[in-house]
């Protein structure tokens, strides 16, 4: 019993912070989503109008479709790149020192602000940016490409730039724990490269892939800044829709949208966890 009391005391600060800054706020969020409001204030009430507006509006459905398509595209691209980068670090590179160094090189950009990493694409993608200059200069195109900046293309590029690392790290982690003798055994038994990959490495990497996928999908689903900045206000996402309602001070509407987004994100995470058991990783 004394052990339990000690554990409780040690865990109490964490529990307290999460209670005050996570549990209570989420509770308030749900409560406010049932409030009424006018242009200047919140009116405590229990009405379903906010939810009726959320589900009744075509804008909501279109915005969700757009957000899902961003999430799906970014997920596929980050998974493909992330898997092969992790594979390269784990299986092609030999020697712990070299591996650690290359891994660190991949993680250093994580130390810079996401905002700055988004802004950094402007001189590349703009109408007079490096890419257009290079393409026009080489004679590949006559007119600068307009779709590079402030477009869905720019949004996806920025997401991939920001979040591929979240895929690399967990997959690399699971790959490093694979017993190399399993691969040797498969090779000795006559399996080629792709068969080893498909039947040995990939199944053992599933937990890492799942953790990376959760990170990427949740980050994209809840994003507002990347879509606003990189699309120049020309594209939409659920997060951006909520943040616009907040700037119009329509808090109950924003709260209702937030509760729906919360439910959607939790369902997506639950779906991933049903497919892959990650408990061994934790």
């Amino acid at each position: 019993m004394r052990g339990a009391v000690t554990s409780w005391l040690l865990a109490a600060p964490l529990a307290l912070v999460l209670a005050v800054f996570l549990v209570v706020p989420l509770f308030v969020l749900v409560v406010v989503s049932f409030y009424d409001y006018d242009s200047v204030r919140l009116i405590p009430d229990f009405v379903f109008t906010n939810y009726i507006e959320v589900f009744g509006s075509m804008v909501t459905w279109r915005t969700y479709a757009k957000t899902f398509s961003f999430a799906a595209t970014v997920w596929v691209i980050t998974l493909l790149i992330g898997f092969w980068i992790a594979y390269y670090l784990a299986f092609v590179i030999e020697g712990t020192g070299k591996r650690t160094l290359l891994f660190l090189i991949c993680t250093i950009p994580f130390w810079t602000s996401n905002l700055i990493r988004m802004i950094a694409w402007v001189p590349f993608l703009g109408r007079n940016g490096l890419l257009n200059r290079a393409l026009v200069g080489s004679g590949a195109i006559d007119q600068p490409l307009e779709f590079l900046l402030f477009s869905d293309f720019a949004v996806i590029l920025a997401f991939v730039h920001l979040y591929t690392l979240f895929m690399v790290v967990p997959i690399f982690n699971t790959m490093m724990r694979i017993d190399r003798r399993l691969i040797e055994a498969a090779v000795d038994a006559g399996a080629g490269f792709w068969r080893v990959l498909w039947h040995v490495i990939l199944p053992l990497c599933k937990p890492g892939i799942a953790i990376g996928s959760i990170f990427v999908i949740v980050l994209v689903m809840g994003d507002f800044a990347t879509v606003r900045l990189m699309s120049g206000g020309q594209s939409a996402s659920v997060g951006l829709m909520i943040s616009n309602q907040i700037s119009l001070l329509q808090y109950p509407a924003a709260a209702a949208n937030a509760v729906v987004l919360l439910a959607v994100v939790l369902m997506m995470v639950a779906a991933i966890l049903r497919v892959v058991d990650i408990r061994k990783e934790l």
């Binding site: 052990g3 339990a4 409780w8 996570l22 994003d223 937030a258």
Partner: peptide, 30 residues
Amino acid sequence: RFPGSAWLFYLTIASLILPSLLVGLGIGLA
């Protein structure tokens, strides 16, 4: 393990994966 440790663990993970905008909005409203 202590009574409630699993709950506290899941709550901590939830804190990590919930969209940041929603956490901020919740705290602001609270």
